[in-house]
């Protein structure tokens, strides 16, 4: 097995996903298949090949430090599940 059900539970928690026992079993098996499939890449000899983070050869994509129009408070809050005045409102998160 490439991945344990505890690991699946941990990853689900990190992603704030609630999954039941049946789902956990299913996802463990599915993720295991995926990881095994990806493992196939390890058969390739990559000695001397620089690791790459991007599939395209573009570098240095910059913009100048010029202000563009912001969308404003009202529109910013349009999609907010909860808002009050000019703020998003969320459950208290202080520790």
């Amino acid at each position: 097995m490439k991945i344990s059900s505890q690991e699946v539970e941990y990853v689900a928690h990190l992603a704030r996903l609630e999954i039941n026992e049946k789902e956990k079993e299913k996802f463990t098996s599915q993720l295991n298949d995926i990881l095994l499939y990806i493992d196939k890449l390890n058969e390739l000899d990559t000695k001397g090949v620089e690791p790459m983070s991007h599939a395209i050869a573009v570098t240095n994509a910059f913009r100048e430090d010029k202000t563009s129009t912001s969308i404003g408070t009202e529109q910013t809050l349009t999609n907010a599940p909860d808002a009050r005045g000019e703020f998003f409102r969320v459950p208290k998160v202080i520790e």
Binding site: R63, T67, S68, T69, S70, I71, G72, T73, F87, F88
Partner: peptide
């Protein structure tokens, strides 16, 4: 402007106004 968009970095604007 901000690091990845053209919104202003000025301090003290109306809340949620320097956004995109």
């Amino acid at each position: 402007t901000k690091i990845f968009c053209g919104c202003s970095t000025k301090f003290g604007g109306a809340p949620n106004s320097h956004t995109c």
